[in-house]
């Protein structure tokens, strides 16, 4: 199909709101599921193909043009550092990157005593490095693949940089957020070439999504 639009959708917690949004924009999303083994779905009538993949891989699919568009959290975009265009804030999937420390490390005024040789455990080394550089702080970054909150408890790191949506995990592990680094939410991203070559279709979808976001009551 010459004028087919390929959209990459994230598995996990952003999946359902993404599907709801697309279905509100008139796409046939009935077959879509992130549990099924099939990862490619067609909406023949609208000439759209959906691919379902890991959120962290979506910027890669879009950068190389395997997908024209993608819907993914800002967190994945920052960490991937890819060359693509970010068109729209979709407002759902709100969360924050925070720097957090164990409560018992704080002074009685609630200040964190910065010192040399600190270690920060995180799943997001690029973001953590940029943050440290911007603040002029020095620390060693330890890349982990999950359950970062464990690191301070077992002495792997003094601090963590992690993504927080409700703050429950931090609380349960007796960690206190020191600073919000970036606020993140779901974004619509597009491939550089597709943005030009499929401009008409992409702008039409963009317009529909914008109308939809306006109509929807503010959610959090």
């Amino acid at each position: 199909m010459e004028n087919k639009l390929t959209i990459a959708l994230p598995k996990g917690k952003l999946f359902q709101p993404t599907v709801d949004l697309l279905s509100n924009c008139g796409m046939n999303t009935q077959e879509l599921s992130d549990k099924a083994r099939t990862l490619v779905f067609e909406d023949v009538q609208n000439k759209v193909q959906f691919i379902v993949c890991r959120p962290t891989d979506i910027p890669i699919y879009v950068e190389h043009g395997a997908a024209d568009l993608g819907i993914v959290g800002k967190d994945s975009i920052i960490e991937a550092g890819k060359n693509l265009y970010e068109l729209l804030d979709l407002k759902f999937g709100q969360c924050s990157f925070v720097l957090a420390a164990p409560r018992k490390q704080l002074s009685s005024e609630g200040e964190y005593p910065w010192k040399q040789g600190l270690r920060i455990a995180t799943k997001f080394p690029t973001l953590a490095k940029d943050y440290l550089q911007k603040k002029g702080l020095q620390a060693e970054i330890i890349k982990l693949h999950g359950n970062v909150e464990l690191a301070p408890r077992v002495g792997l790191a003094e601090l963590i940089v992690d993504l927080v949506s409700t703050g429950k995990t931090l609380l349960e592990n007796d960690l206190v957020p020191l600073e919000e680094i970036v606020h993140a939410s779901a974004r619509l991203i597009v491939n550089r070439a597709s943005y030009r070559l499929k401009a008409e279709r992409i702008n039409k979808l963009l317009f529909e999504i914008k109308v939809n976001l306006k109509n929807e009551p503010k959610q959090d």
Binding site: V62, E63, G65, N83, R192, A193, R196, L197
Partner: peptide, 9 residues
């Protein structure tokens, strides 16, 4: 200059 299938100019 952009062409289909190549994500870069």
């Amino acid at each position: 200059i952009y062409t289909a299938g190549i994500g870069y100019p």
